[in-house]
Nucleic acid binder design. Structure first.
Lengths: 173, 173, 173, 173
DNA sequence: TTGTAACCGAGACGGTACGTCCGGTCTTTGT
DNA sequence: ACAAAGACCGGACGTACCGTCTCGGTTACAA
């Protein structure tokens, strides 16, 4: 199922993700889909969840002792995921769905976003940052902004500079 | 037309914004819509554009000399727009559309986002900030993050703290 | 379905027979109609076919031994059908469609017209008429003419006179 | 205008005759059409009328003294018109319209059909036929039947045999 | 071994919206 | 002034999916 969803999301415009299409692609009857998921959004989110809980799909927060280096690695990892054709498309699709479905948004928040942000905040707190949650937001927010609105491409220099700014903001540089 | 779109967006789930519905609400034939716009996304964006170019709908960057105060005002203004029931819903709908339509994303970028960010960057540059564009992103990104992903509510204290962090990041505090 | 078609044809102008209308009247979705028939013409013809294959709707050729009497009965039966408000309207509608659709015309010819004419020709041949097919045409043609072009009303006297003329034409009176 | 109508009728399926199409083909605005005719049927009938009143388009009843020969010529002329690609298509289209529009049918009857039948009846009466109108119907009906229902092609032998039968029917052969 | 479930694919069904076309009416524009 | 150009509302066109439903045909466990 997830495979079918990923394939469609990766190779066709978002509006082409339909129950009918997924069922056809997965050689499954529509009823089988509806038995498990109420909507394409739900399948989509499930696929993202599976991929993220999988060891290979998760972005982990490194902890080497060198905070700046760790954050650069973390952000580089995120950027890698966001720019990956398949995972990027998947994330974009889920994000779009979230905007119009508060229930889905809540799930996404609790199961994916909050743990992710908590892990980052934790790493920052361990390095002595106060207001670690706000700091985590300061770190991640601009990445989301640049990716979502496609204002500019990511590059290594920007990642380093961004991490530098964030560390200065929390008075650790 | 815009009025009809705003009404529907404000009071019904996003999926209920259809060409048929807009036509009915605006007492207009479908063909009249299709003559001007190819999709609901286009009408939606047009409505946002109209509202933003209108003097009353735009967020302007204040310039009183006191940078911190100005940024707090600016962010408070943004937050006000984002949390306004009508405008917020409109922005959410357009943002969702942008995620699945690169052409629309480009328009949004050029006509709304870039000028907005440029204005902010300009204000920062005038205060002596280098890398003003990145700084603008640092300022706006976390706001987008919090709004889009609905992680936490906005409040005045956070706005002030956030502006403080950004100013520290650009070494002006 | 047939019932809905008959009702519409009987009580409204021919142009008002639409897929949309039939679907509504039959409390059926448009797709259900399109799954079975490609056009209103096809449904119409199907309704006529059903009615004609039904024992109650068919005009049978009587065979009592008295040819003149039999033909008078036959023509009277035809006239009865053609002047019946419902069946007449149905026939008129199908005839109009036939004029613009050769495929439909062929079906009509093979399934309804030819058997009908063959039965008449058979009756005539049994009475010793040569060129029975042409004679059948001579019998039926003027009825069609008078009905289709609405030149004059039918009455019993005309039927008798007409049959007399036809029998004289084939040299049996 | 008539030219445009004839062209469309001759080269495209009947359903393709639209006000919009005629206007385009004749390089005329729709309003100009509506100023003169209320429907495509009306234009169509007008075109037929013009062509029939024109000396070249009318079928005249010959009167050489030899009734059989005259009728054979008359029927052959009719058959020629009915099988002509352009005029035949025009007649077919008008006939279809007549079936669904009593007002149009009345016009057709008064302006074209009745004079035509009267002329034939007149010729027959002059030759001593009683019930000349019914005889005219007997002559013309089977031609209509064969043409309209496309049962069989016309040929010279049939024309001669048919005329023979009709003359026998009216007791003149 | 033979029921007897549970589950599945296939796909019909009543719906809603799609994007297009045409019917008529009315307004604007140019000659 | 009059006609072309074409905007406009209404509504049918034929198509795609929606979510629900019944239908047979398996597996797989129980009697």
């Amino acid at each position: 199922m997830h495979e079918a969803v990923l394939a469609i999301v990766a190779e066709r415009p978002m509006a082409a993700l339909t129950m009918e299409g997924i069922a056809a692609r997965a050689s499954v009857s529509k009823q089988t889909l509806y038995r498990t998921w109420p909507s394409t959004s739900a399948i989509l989110f499930d696929a993202l969840l599976a991929r993220s809980l999988d060891e290979s799909g998760a972005v982990v927060v490194p902890d080497s002792g060198d905070l700046a280096a760790d954050l650069r690695l973390l952000i580089a990892g995120m950027v890698g995921e966001l720019t990956d054709p398949v995972h990027g498309a998947l994330l974009r699709a889920v994000t779009a769905d979230i905007l119009g479905d508060e229930a889905l948004a809540a799930q996404h928040r609790e199961l994916l976003l909050r743990p992710q942000l908590a892990a980052i905040a934790d790493r920052l707190a361990r390095a002595g940052v106060t207001d670690a949650e706000d700091a985590a937001e300061l770190l991640v927010g601009p990445v989301l902004h640049r990716w979502l609105l496609r204002t500019r491409r990511f590059d290594e220099a920007w990642v380093a500079a961004h991490v530098g700014r964030v560390l200065r903001a929390v008075a650790l540089a």
